[in-house]
Design a protein around this nucleic acid. Structure first.
Length: 476
RNA sequence: GUCCCCAUCGUCUAGAGGCCUAGGACCCCAGCCUUUCACGCUGGUAACGGGGGUUCGAAUCCCCCUGGGGACGCCA
């Protein structure tokens, strides 16, 4: 429990670099970050790479990149457990000298057999403590170190999302805290680190809830006060099953590639398991102000891409275009278009954002702004590039040629003037023009389309469409 | 198998005994707007898993069942 005079909170996000940063981890990181920001505390990033076998440099990079992309900036770190082995060894010695840890030479085979036996007998598999008080250990076997867990009583703690939690020590066993080569294991390192780094609130996935009583016992053995805990529920796949590689994009960086805005993902994630009345849309500032870890649900939530898309569109429309452009530019390049060959990205975003849900869709719906199209869409050309369209197109082309003020407003006036002059319906000019400019029958409003294509290119493309109509007429 | 947790529309959620003929959002459907595509607007379909209690009264409290999830590593 927090003392009234205690210092500002310190939270940490502690991923293990055995893969990329997935959405579940990202949400945990977000919650840690938000709670720290909200209480003017400190957010710490720690890489849990004690398992040297499975940790990779590439994963560390991916996690750091993911965090950076989301804008979850740490105040301290990143710390690496692999660089703290000396400290763990020191604490290990301390425990051992106090008799709170002991060496164990039980073979993996024996342990496996024991487990199988217990399961068969309808019991919960636990270490039976054979080496706990043994004077003489087996020869020639490098021992692991086990923590001497209390055998009776119970561990009680108040979880900020789960409420009161209690575990009987009888359910626990003497866990391994160091491998035969002396390298420490997770449950031990976490405690030493959280203690040394003075973490005051541990926010993590609820798959760790069962580790908590063991860790609390280690805190006590070390004479330290455990931090507060908050175990947040997991995120499920769209089918309600546990999220895995099978459910499509799981890495945060894959969402970037799919064309999502980091803020849209954050907004989506913050609403998973947490809410503030009926509010769906949150700015960064609102999240910080309104978020409260104690208001988080206890129920696992399924990930819904449709809602993410809706939020993504919302933020593409809402965020300052310059900000969206930062994400759009690399997408254009990645998809083979040269940003220099098209309109200013801010202009493009301002007209296209409401027509697409991702940046990838935005790029695909805007190719005509950056490069000439090969052929007219057959259906659209057949329907709209007919002889009857020649006169309006020609009339507009002449008018536009003389137009210097190439703005949506002026273009709209020009188009309407031609329509009025020829006494035709707006669509009689707009649709053929649309096909002429983009090659297809779908695009933003016609004035905006002209605007984005630009004067030189618009005149060229109208000329091309006129030639197409003429050729077609000659053929008939 | 053992221990722990969870349970409101398809999905995310509001709801902390009467304000609930259960609200919002995404999705879906219909209409309006309209030069295409969209946006927007209006309306609609759709839920308290089941059974027992407690209470004048339960989505809200208790129990059982069912269903889902997690944990049980010399992984984190």
């Amino acid at each position: 429990m927090q003392e009234p005079f205690s210092m500002a909170i310190r939270t940490r996000f502690a991923p293990s670099p055995t893969g990329f940063l997935h959405v579940g981890g990202a949400r945990t990181a977000l919650f840690c970050w938000l709670q720290a920001r909200k209480e003017a505390g400190t957010f710490i990033l720690r890489i849990e790479d004690t398992d040297l076998e499975r940790s990779t440099e590439a994963s560390v990079e991916a996690i750091l990149q993911g965090m950076a992309w989301l804008g979850l900036q740490e105040d301290e770190g990143p710390y690496y457990q692999s660089q703290r082995f000396e400290r763990y060894t020191e604490v290990l010695e301390q425990l051992r000298s106090q008799g709170l840890a002991y060496p164990c030479t039980c073979s993996k085979e024996r342990l496996e057999a024991l487990r199988a036996e217990q399961m068969a007998a309808g019991l919960k598999p636990r270490y039976d403590g054979r080496c706990r008080d043994r004077e003489v250990l087996d020869e020639g076997v490098a021992p692991v170190m086990r923590f001497r867990n209390p055998t009776d009583g119970e561990v009680v703690f108040h979880d900020q999302v789960r409420g009161p939690v209690r575990f009987a020590n009888e359910e626990l066993d003497d866990l391994v805290i160091a491998r035969p080569d002396g390298s420490p294991t997770y449950n031990f390192c976490v405690v030493v680190d959280d203690m040394d780094m003075e973490i005051s609130l541990v926010i993590r996935g609820d798959d760790h809830i069962n580790n908590t009583p063991r860790q609390i016992n280690i805190y006590h053995a070390l004479g330290a006060t455990p931090p507060d805990f908050a175990h947040v529920p997991m995120i499920l796949g769209e089918d309600g099953a546990r999220l895995s590689k099978r459910h499509g994009a799981v890495s945060v960086l894959q969402y970037r590639e799919l064309g999502y805005l980091p803020h849209a993902l954050l907004n989506y994630l913050v609403r998973l398991g947490w809410s503030h009345g009926d509010q769906e849309v949150f700015t960064r500032e609102e999240m910080i102000e309104l978020f409260d870890i104690e208001a988080v649900n206890r129920k696992a939530a399924a990930f819904d891409h449709e809602k993410l898309k809706w939020l993504n569109q919302h933020w593409m429309k809402t965020l300052p275009p310059e900000e969206v452009a930062v994400e759009l530019q690399p997408q254009l390049e990645r998809l083979g278009l040269d940003p220099a060959q098209g309109p200013p990205l801010e202009d493009l975003i301002s007209v296209q954002a409401e027509r697409v849900q991702t940046l990838v869709e935005l790029v695909e719906a805007s190719r005509w702004c950056f490069e000439d199209f090969e052929d007219f869409d057959v259906g659209a050309a057949k329907k709209h590039l007919r002889p009857v369209a020649a006169e309006p197109l020609q009339a507009l082309r002449e008018r536009l040629q003389a137009l210097d003020d190439w703005t949506p407003e002026a273009l709209d006036v020009a188009v309407k003037a031609v329509v009025a002059e020829l006494e035709i319906g707006f669509g009689k000019l707009a649709q053929p023009l649309r096909v002429a400019l983009t090659g297809a029958g779908m695009s933003p409003s016609i004035d905006q389309t002209l605007w984005l294509v630009g004067k030189g290119r618009s005149l060229e493309r109208m000329e091309r469409a006129l030639a197409f109509i003429a050729a077609r007429a000659a053929q008939a």
